[in-house]
């Protein structure tokens, strides 16, 4: 069966090719990417393809290599070996073109605290060679978009953590990037602010951007991502949609404390789980299967350590 790949307007023999997952239309292409820090192997040969408009989550515990991958893709770090392409541009050989394709919201706040929100965004626009009229128009648009237009002339140091995070997202969108890298975008934020950032991310994706998100929050990946990659000790151990990954385990998880240790059994239906409990004594807790279960089953470790 042949499909017409919308990105390259050519025939593709892969049956599931419909722009999103077609290798020919991969917006982010990573091939055998490795990174060593002296004797530490931070990335052990990553391979990944992410399609246009996809919201892709990179899930793993701290130190698994999530930030390292983003730093390499955005030009902040150099790969020890391997290749990566953003919209077809090689990140090292065509670094300037590759950088124009992407916006980055790093994990640590990196705003100029002495400057105002407007000035921070204006400098970003200048760095991406936007002219004055473009910059002013875009800043006004984006501040409305992230709902902080009233703080346009406030010094960044006067903003709360959630507002700073929104400024960082707005700043990353200044040059209208096709790919947005979000490195732990909600880390350290309270649940209400986190939800607001999530809806902002969803809205950005609906505008057509490809989003590459790293997180160690299970619910964040489940809520936002169309596909998830599990990263464990520098290697990708599973990639698929959250639903597919979770369905491999079953639909229901039954937690039981046995000799002080938590044991979890998985069932396709609630009835099966209830039938298992019947006649048994102990402390049980029945819940929906989540990505954490899949991660533990795959790696033997928890995501949130």
């Amino acid at each position: 069966m042949y499909w017409i790949c919308s990105g390259h307007q050519k025939r593709c023999s892969i049956s599931w090719c419909h722009a999103h997952h077609c290798p020919n239309t991969a917006v982010i292409r990573i091939e055998s990417l490795k990174k060593h820090y002296k004797s530490v192997e931070a990335l052990k040969g990553i391979n990944l393809r992410i399609g246009p408009g996809e919201l892709f989550a990179y899930l793993g515990p701290n130190g698994s290599g999530k930030t390292t991958t983003i730093r390499i893709l955005t030009g902040l770090a150099r790969a020890t070996s391997g290749d990566a392409y953003l919209h077809g541009y090689h990140i090292e050989r065509e670094s300037l073109q590759a950088k124009r394709q992407c916006g980055l919201v790093p994990q640590t706040l990196n705003l100029d605290h002495e400057l105002t929100v407007f000035e921070n965004m204006d400098i970003h626009g200048r760095l991406f060679h936007m002219d004055r009229r473009q910059r002013v128009r875009r800043i006004e648009e984006l501040l409305e978009y992230v709902e902080i237009a009233d703080r346009r002339d406030s010094p960044v140091k006067t903003l709360s953590g959630g507002l700073k995070r929104r400024v960082m997202v707005a700043r990353a969108l200044m040059h209208d990037p096709r790919i947005l890298f979000l490195d732990e975008p909600t880390v350290g934020l309270d649940p209400t602010i986190r939800r607001r950032i999530w809806s902002l991310i969803k809205r950005i994706q609906q505008q057509g951007a490809t989003i590459f998100l790293t997180t160690h929050y299970i619910e964040e990946a489940e809520f936002l991502a169309e596909r998830v990659a599990f990263l464990h000790e520098g290697s990708i151990v599973a990639v698929d949609s959250p639903q597919t990954l979770m369905s491999r385990m079953g639909s229901w998880a039954l937690d039981e404390v046995v000799n002080g240790e938590m044991e979890t059994r998985y069932f396709q239906t609630r009835e099966e789980a209830n039938a298992h409990i019947e006649g048994q004594q102990g402390s049980f807790s029945l819940r929906r299967v989540n990505l954490e279960d899949v991660f533990i089953a795959t790696t033997g470790k928890r995501v949130q350590q």
Binding site: G75, L76, Q97, K99, P106, T108, N110, H124, L127, H129
Partner: peptide, 14 residues
């Protein structure tokens, strides 16, 4: 401290 240098590194400037 502010990590602004990363903003410059990620920008398309030589």
């Amino acid at each position: 401290y502010w990590r602004i240098f990363e903003e410059f590194q990620a920008a398309p400037i030589r």
